[in-house]
Design a protein around this nucleic acid. Structure first.
Lengths: 246, 246
DNA sequence: TAGTTGATGTGGTTGGACCACATAGCCTAG
DNA sequence: CTAGGCTATGTGGTCCAACCACATCAACTA
């Protein structure tokens, strides 16, 4: 029933045939990250389909973050296999938020779930924590010099992603990134309306340091608690998107 | 007519322009689930692009689970807006697993995380639990009559998804579904090799009933513990350890 | 009245053409 | 001999004009 057998004579749409062929190349290891697909014209000829169908398949893979297409010649050109799961998940989540079928509150709630788990699981000596510490310093610098929320938030996102990465689970990392991306505009919108950004930034930084310290002390439970409070507090301060009572 | 304020950056690829236009229609509520897009030819003319570019955009939306394209005439034809986030996330995860950049162990781990949370959060009177109970009965019937692992597993998946749905978080539900889909072939592969399927099925059913009972008793903590043991035990029985990482 | 048949409109597919781009390599001026 | 410019080549990006299979509906026919 779940056989991996490919029926090339079925009523499958042409671009799906191409898609299946490429996915099989990936599964079999004949194509891997960094590798390049045959040119669109070559692929069309090999699979006996039109270039249009090949392009539709490639467009899907591009949207999924599996390939990157580049014009011209040289190493940057052609269609090359990459691996950017966050792009695909983020686009999908953003689109479905647009259809009103994915409440922002559910996204925030899921983010808390994943990030809390990551904080609890992160090892005190994870190298990603060094990056997180560096980012904290940069946020301090931004606060002293420019005091712009945008720059601070960009670093804040990278800090939280670094914490998630420290848990060592690629799926959780990707999902975290995509969740952030899908509500990025939403977050920035009410951040701009905060009454006292400097105070907020200072508080966020203090909380960041507490979280990092807890992880460094191997106190996963405390780190998780702090992370949950940190995120919930931030969104509550914006006066929006409070997840259901819990 | 379409006096939107989209930034028509000249460096944007044509299909992305179409994508942006459609996404804006969704955000503005001028397009919603159940609604139909203009025909490909009409859309091409309105946006002053080729039908090819329109089709590439639609192909992406289709892969993202945002639209469904149907030929012919009538209510089932045309390109209609749907909302199937699971399809997009599942395809993306499956593709990236194929590129060896998302370890199956990470997916299983994430599944345990999400499903444990869902079990702990599900309300005892959630209507989805009735469906879960019905599915348990059907699994019993399958076991008595046919004893095929495939049919049983199909119901098993629906049971677990029902539990996830009971938590009332659409993002978690979608992610759960996509995680299952992405490792479906993987799961079925070693299930076929289990030494005594009947015994395994009976044990799984007993555990299912325990989990459901715990949720009905409003004992979220116990339900979560049972779910974690249930999933971990299943994958362990299949002789699947954590894939070597390095 | 019941069945057939054609018109209409949908997405699906194809081949060909042209464009912008980026490299590699030849080729000329100095 | 070198440095610069120019051309050949190959890539993806875009567009067009067909044709197909399909599904409905309305007009027509027995």
């Amino acid at each position: 029933m779940w056989s991996n057998h490919i029926n090339y004579d079925s009523d499958m749409r042409t671009h799906q045939l191409v898609l299946t062929w490429i996915e099989k190349q990936l599964s079999d290891g004949q194509l891997s990250v960094g590798g390049r697909l045959p040119s669109e014209r070559t692929l069309a000829e090999q699979l006996a389909v039109s270039r249009t169908s090949v392009r539709e398949a490639i467009r899907i893979l591009e949207a999924m973050g599996v390939v990157r297409a580049g014009v011209g010649s040289g190493p940057e050109a052609g269609t090359v296999v990459i691996s950017d799961p966050t792009a695909a998940l983020g686009s999908a989540l953003r689109l479905h938020v647009a259809t009103q079928h994915l409440p922002v509150s559910d996204i925030v709630e899921t983010r808390i779930l994943l990030e809390t788990w990551a904080a609890a699981r992160a090892k005190p000596d994870a190298p990603e924590l060094d990056l997180a510490a560096t980012l904290l310093g940069e946020m301090d610098a931004v606060e002293r010099v420019a005091r712009t929320a945008d720059d601070f938030l960009a670093l804040d996102i990278r800090f939280h992603l670094a914490l998630a990465d420290a848990a060592g689970n690629a799926v959780v990392s990707s999902m975290m990134g995509s969740l952030r991306e899908s509500i990025q505009g939403y977050t920035a919108r009410f951040t701009a309306n905060l009454p006292d950004w400097d105070a907020t930034a200072s508080r966020l930084q203090a909380e960041h340091r507490e979280i990092l310290a807890a992880i460094r002390n191997d106190d996963g439970a405390r780190a998780a608690t702090l992370v949950a409070a940190h995120i919930e507090g931030y969104y509550r301060e914006g006066g929006v998107g409070r997840p259901a009572e819990g």
